[in-house]
Amino acid sequence: MSEITFEGLFKRYMSGTLNAGEIRLFRSMALQPENKALLSQLLQEAFNDPAYAESADFDAGEMALEVMMKARQSEAIPVLHRTKPSIVARPWFKYAAAAAIFLLLLAVSWEWNNRKKTGTGTIAQASQSPRGTARPMLILGDGTRIALDSAANGAIAQQGSAQVIKLANGQLAYKQFSQKNTGLVYNIMQTPTGCLYQLILPDGSHVWLNAASSIRYPTAFPEDKRMVEVSGEAYFDIAKDDRKPFIVTAKGMDVQVLGTSFNVMAYADEAAVKTTLVQGAVKINADRILHPGEQAVLHHASGELSVNKPDMEEILGWKNGEFYFRNTDISTIMRQIARWYDIEIKYEGDMSGIELSGIVSRTAKISQLLKALELTKIVRFKTQGRTITVMPYQEAN
């Protein structure tokens, strides 16, 4: 019986002759770091040969997506593919473009995996800001600002009847040391561009803040209700308390819960406020009930409130350290990129109808991400300092 090699499995995968068990073995071996260099070499050789690519019984984009989606069950592995036909006439080019994307982002995925193994806590991504100044900030009741990335672990402030504590894992938490009513004292937690942060509210509820977001909350909740205010995007896992409803206010939308998990997106540059329910039940603006998997959308221009069923992986991708796009228009994609990398976006030409799908780790450098988007042959970018100009690919040539 001949020895099974990764190279042999690769060639048979490309020709479509692997059985189900061999495909699983190939996927597993493709994700092993020791096979990284060989996989890159094999892909380059295969996709650089037009005759081979034209006659092979495979779809390169599907291959990349299959391998990466399989890996995402345990790791955050990025992949990007296009959702509209390439304008390039040569039939084999679609394979070469997909391969180039696959190779580029596969390299990023290994860097991401290595970082995860030596992670630096919940604010590790703060250091990604291109300008080097991104710092998660706690603003105390008297206006004092504390940069949390440089604050030592342990008690960092006293606010009313509570101690503010930075935990060993980097999270922020509150510990009540007195039952004496000292009045409401509010804190504000802010994340800049390029930074995620997690905190534990005084009632034990967990909050994840996306980039360029903030939450305002009392350091001790009163007896009748728990109310916080959000700008930007936040994911909540609420501690259940039937006596105290939890209320999130976000640019005209009120979300009332008892104990549940949900996502609120309320950026100033978006056309609507969106609340997406993951688990439990919430009431929107006092009368609209959401069920798990549903999203309430409050449109700024019309004031209309609608409910739909979104792609949950796309909604929660940021919380998992990913850009996750599924048939997402280019302007929405670029707004997310701008918040994360602290850049300004301009457009040239007709960008209508341009949609992309894909999964990219937020640890990728912006140059890698833009290069991956360009390899779709749909869009191209011009970089001048912190300004990125987006153009349709054909108009950029």
Rank of each mutant, 00 (worst) to 15 (best):
S2D: 12
T5Q: 11
K11I: 08
R12D: 15
A20I: 13
L25Y: 08
F26S: 05
S28R: 13
E45A: 07
G61L: 04
L65R: 13
V67T: 04
M68G: 10
R72D: 04
E75G: 12
V79M: 09
L80S: 03
L80T: 08
W92A: 08
F93I: 10
A99C: 06
S109Q: 07
T118N: 13
A126C: 14
Q128W: 10
T133M: 06
A134R: 00
P136Y: 03
D142E: 09
L148Y: 04
D149W: 04
A152P: 15
A152T: 08
I165K: 02
S178M: 02
K180E: 11
T182A: 02
Y186T: 01
L196H: 06
I200K: 04
G204H: 00
R216W: 02
F221L: 03
D224N: 13
V230H: 03
G232Y: 03
E233M: 02
A239G: 05
R243D: 12
R243K: 14
T249E: 15
G252R: 05
G259W: 01
A266K: 03
Y267N: 00
A268R: 00
A271E: 09
A286W: 08
I289F: 07
I289A: 08
H291L: 14
P292S: 07
G293K: 09
E294T: 02
Q295N: 11
A296E: 08
L298P: 15
H299D: 08
S302R: 11
M312F: 03
E313M: 14
F323W: 07
R326Q: 08
D342L: 01
M351E: 09
L369A: 05
K382L: 04
K382R: 13
V390T: 06
Y393H: 15
Y393F: 15
E395T: 15
